[in-house]
Structure formats: C-alpha cells, structure tokens
Write a protein that binds this DNA or RNA. Sequence first.
DNA 1: TTGATGAGTGATTGATCACTCACTCTTGGA
DNA 2: TCCAAGAGTGAGTGATCAATCACTCATCAA
Lengths: 185, 185
Amino acid sequence: MPASTTLSTAELRRPIVAAAALSEFARGGFHGTTIADVAREARISPAYVFKLFPGKEALFVAALEACFDEVIAALSSGADAASDQSPTGILDAMADAYAELIGDRRLLSIQVHAQSITHIPEVGAGLREGLARVTSFAKERSNGSNADVQRFMAYGQLCHLIVTAGVEGETQPWAEILTHGIRHP
Amino acid sequence: MPASTTLSTAELRRPIVAAAALSEFARGGFHGTTIADVAREARISPAYVFKLFPGKEALFVAALEACFDEVIAALSSGADAASDQSPTGILDAMADAYAELIGDRRLLSIQVHAQSITHIPEVGAGLREGLARVTSFAKERSNGSNADVQRFMAYGQLCHLIVTAGVEGETQPWAEILTHGIRHP
DNA sequence: TTGATGAGTGATTGATCACTCACTCTTGGA
DNA sequence: TCCAAGAGTGAGTGATCAATCACTCATCAA
C-alpha cells in the first residue's frame, strides 16, 4: 500500500468532477457550459468525463445533488448555532446561514439554471428531490408550523430573485420594497 | 392607399416576431432556442429576423418586455375585478389573476429563463425593468404596506418554483407544505 | 416608364460542441 | 517477470447554429 502517489480511482474522482461541474454549470448554465469547461476545471480530459458520467445531463444532475448537499449542511450548522431555539428562531438562523452560503452565488445559480431546464426529466426529478430534502429538513429541525416553513421557502425564493436580477444595486422605492429585511448576500 | 393587401412594414412586424420569440424562448430557453425556431413560428425567414432585430439577445429582451406587458395587464384587470377593494383584498385578487395567467406557462417560463442568463447585461436590465414595473404597480394599485407587497412578490416566486419543479404532482408532506394555499395554476 | 427604397429570402460559412474510438500508460497480483 | 484490468487521453466526426451576403421582388413618387 504505497502511501505517496496512489492513483485516484474513478470512484474517488467522480465527486471531484461533480464539484467542478457545479462551479462551471453555475457560471454558464446547462447549454452555456461545455464538457471541455468542466474537464479543464477538473484537470482531466474531456473524453474521461464520459467515462465517469454517461452524458452531460447526468453530470448536471450530479452537480445539482452536490449543491443540495452543501445547502443542507449549511442549514444544519446554522440551526445548531441559533441563539433562540424556538421554531421561528431556528428558521431565522437558517435563513441567515443560507444568505451567507449563497454569497458566492454558485449554489444559488445552479438552482436557477436547474429551474430553467426542468423539461429534462432527470433534472426535474433532481430538483424535486433537493426541494424535498430542504423542506423536510427545515420542518423537522425547526419544528415550526407548515405556514412558517412555507414562508421560509418563499422568502428564500425572493432572495434568489433579488440576487440574480441584481436588485441590490438599485436604490429606487421598488427595490427597497423587495430587499427590505433580506440579509444582503 | 390600397386597402386590401398592404404589405406589413417592418415596424408592424416587429411585435409579431417578439410574440413568436416569447413562445419559443419560453419553451426552449435562450440557448435551447434557435433563430430558425422563432422565424418558423413567425412565418418569416431566419435571415429576416436579423433585419428586424440586431441579434439573438435583443430578440430575447424584446420577448421579455412583451411578457411583462401581459403580466401588468393581467394584474390590472385582476385588481379591477376584486370584490374586496382593501389593500390585501386587491393583492389577493392580483395573486389570483397571476396564478390564472401563468396557467399556460409561457409567461412564467421566460421569466425563469431570463433569471438564468442575467449575466447578459441587457437581459439583467430588462428583468430589473420588469420587476420594477410589477412591484411599483402592485404598490400603487393596492396601496398596501411595503411588507404586504413584498409578501405578494415572495409568494409569487414560490409559485414559480412550484410550477417549474412540478411539485403539484407530489403528494408527500413536503409538497403539501410548499403548495398549501397556493392557487394551482 | 423609371428608378429608388425597402421587404423578404436562399445559400453559405465559420465556429462550436457532444460524443466516440482506438489507443497508451500504470498498477499490482501471481 | 509478466499480464490483466482499469486509468486516462488525442484526434477526430457529424451535427448544429448564429450571423452574413448577395440577391429578387414589390411599391410608389416623379
């Protein structure tokens, strides 16, 4: 068992490529990102990407799953760190953690891109799966009412819109209405 | 002035092509839709599209503007028809009208697609412009508080997510949390 | 009648990209 | 030492598509 330069197996490399795909798809979207982009980011050849994933769509779904893994982890540690452990206190802490998390836009962007290609069945299924995980986790961890959890999700979506549209750069009244009380990411 | 077969001028044809672009971009997104698709829908040649619009991006922006025209019109007539003319009564009526409007998915889809390509400056600007129109209209027409209008927008975004992800087909508890009280489009 | 202007198109081009295939290199067990 | 199995790649290929260009045809003012 030579400790120094063990070749990474395909099994070990797959999640690395998925992470690279997350970054690249977040930047360019599904159609705007090439397999070559992902391969370059992952430091492998384009051809090898197809040995690790059956096609571009499966690669996108893997990236989306990696995104929701990170989201759940951030919500979890945010909830743990909440000073007020009441349901709404926990949901507020989760919202803060989420706003912090999407500061780099990667996790936000790929969700928006996924929304725009849900006509690909695997992507739609992957998005629903992620939503199920987030919603269920928020409900169970906070023990809040259904209405509280729904509001948490709705304002999360508003936050997505504010960031993707760049509303934060605006100073008019309409922008103030949308952004008021939203932690600026 | 021959009344029978006056040739449509470029000026008159542009909005027709924009409407065709709205339908096509809504179906395939920016990268997934070709100029040939739009041309076919508008019954003109691909080459002529480039005589009417300087490029694909300008065509998308025109389609997005047409989308917000329709949205404002629907909100307006929804508000007029509200039985309860209090601020929240008007906002509720607008929400109903909006849910009704996006039943055909075209107006919803192009907004989601626009969100995914806001890195194109003209698209980002067009989206902010549309948001400004919708938010300002909701505020002025309803005379509701800023918080009421913000909630109206947030739940609108949740509605977008529910429809694009196909949450309505799900019956699990997490789906019930998200969709409860949302008028099914 | 003429000629200028604008409507509208067919054919093409240059670039891009998902995906394939035949191939080489590396590793570790017998 | 040898070899089987898997890691990893270079060089394509066929298809697609935005954008261009040289054209034809219709209209109408003078």
